[in-house]
Design a binder for these strands. Structure first.
Length: 402
DNA sequence: TAAGCGTGGTG
DNA sequence: TCACCAAGCTT
């Protein structure tokens, strides 16, 4: 029953005929009351006008994305597949569209629907997620799939129902409800926060302004095409109302925008300065077997890089000295320096001195040998690929099995 | 409430 | 180069 976009139509040539009809209807219908009630001095037009202008712009300029149904397909009655909407939204949390595309394609090819994903091994999901970051998302994704599949294989079709699922917060619940189920939900992500804070020149720091921003969005969201409206806001934020150097001349809302009139839209949103990022240090140990296998182990399920695979390392606050290094090595041996790698996480920077040695025989307790042709498929986070590459260049690229 | 949680692109 | 920050969630 759930259809999805297999046609990949481009935006060019999209007349937007059916869509523009919906647009005007939405403008006059849904938000008339709020708009006439309090006329914000910042907005020149009423809230219906904002939705109308934005949807018309979206009809002409929307991005064509693998998980998206184009406006003209929606007008023909095609509906998004909630599974694909959910999967894409979780992947897109704090993650760029470009980074998500290939992962999304790989996931839907491996696991085309919720039941397929529920039947998968968590370990395989972690492997497929490796490199995308924020790995608790992958764990929650699998937990969510299990739950939904157990409850009949259909996602809840309301914001409240969706919000109760693991890995689905306020934003994602609203986005799925609007896009997949046509609920006029207020979808507020980083793009929307930026667009709205500029529209109304909100000068309070973003952390305090979130309620205000949400209220503005609730006033503007149209009763029809709420999914397109949400995606239009995000497309506008991603392509026009960008964090730096916004393209205000191309913006369909420039006449509504207080920050544009003031001449310095980049001033918004106002963010509090961030604290310093501490530097942590440690050592990592790459044990190489004669046949090219590498010694690995699995990290704890929770916390940093939870559930992912790593090479043995010291703790990441340890001083680099002989004692701590030797004590943390997976076995005593002739560990030779093999370079140093740097990596920046969200809240600290890391420098790891890499050591390397040759080793044969059984893997120590809690460790395992990964064959040369299997390494690229392991659930290795990027920082660990850097470590292995430093010791054995090319080892994490696809190796020919022989 | 604020901190913890990845990675890659960008100006 | 490097600081900023992206379709946030959890605890």
């Amino acid at each position: 029953m759930a259809l999805h976009d297999q046609t990949r139509k481009t935006a060019s040539g999209d007349s937007g005929k059916a869509a523009s009809g919906d647009t005007s209807k939405a403008a006059s219908g849904d938000s008339g009351k709020a708009a006439s009630g309090d006329s914000s001095k910042a907005a020149s037009g009423d809230s219906g006008e904002i939705a109308s202008r934005l949807l018309a712009w979206y009809d002409a300029h929307h991005r064509d994305l693998p998980w998206r149904i184009a406006p003209r397909e929606l007008a023909r009655g095609m509906r998004p597949d909630p599974y694909r909407v959910w999967l894409s939204e979780v992947m897109l949390q704090q993650t760029t569209v470009e980074a998500v595309k290939s992962y999304f394609q790989a996931f839907v090819q491996k696991w085309p629907d919720i039941n397929a994903l529920a039947s998968a091994q968590t370990e395989d999901v972690m492997k497929a997620w490796a490199g995308l970051g924020y790995y608790s998302r992958a764990r929650n994704l699998k937990a969510c799939a299990d739950l939904v599949a157990r409850q009949g294989g259909r996602f809840p079709d309301t914001q409240a129902g969706l919000r109760a699922l693991p890995g689905i917060g306020a934003y994602t619940a609203a986005a799925i409800a609007a896009i997949a189920f046509d609920e006029p939900a207020a979808v507020v992500d980083g793009n929307v926060e930026r667009v709205v804070s500029r529209l109304f020149s909100i000068a309070t720091p973003l952390s305090e302004a979130k309620g205000d921003i949400r209220a503005h969005v609730e006033r503007v969201v149209p009763g029809t095409r709420p999914g397109d409206f949400a995606q239009a806001m995000m497309d506008l934020g991603a392509t026009i109302c960008t964090p730096r150097r916004p393209r205000c001349m191309l913006c369909p809302l420039r006449e509504d925008c207080s920050a544009t009139v003031s001449g310095d839209p980049e001033r918004f949103p106002v963010r509090l300065p961030k604290g310093e990022k501490p530097l942590r240090r440690g050592a990592a140990f790459v044990a190489l077997r004669a046949d090219g296998a590498i010694l690995l182990r699995k990290r704890a399920d929770k916390g940093l890089l939870g559930g992912m695979t790593e090479v043995p390392t010291t703790g990441w606050t340890a001083r680099i000295d002989g004692a701590t290094t030797d004590a943390a090595a997976p076995f005593p041996g002739d560990w030779r320096p093999a370079g140093r790698i740097g990596h920046v996480f969200t809240h600290f920077a890391l420098e790891l001195d890499v050591f390397k040695t040759m080793r044969d025989g059984a893997a120590p307790q809690g460790h395992f040998w990964s064959l040369a042709h299997e390494i690229s498929g392991e659930a290795l986070p990027t920082v660990m690929k850097k470590v292995i590459e430093a010791a054995i260049p090319g080892a994490t690229k696809k190796q020919r099995p022989h």
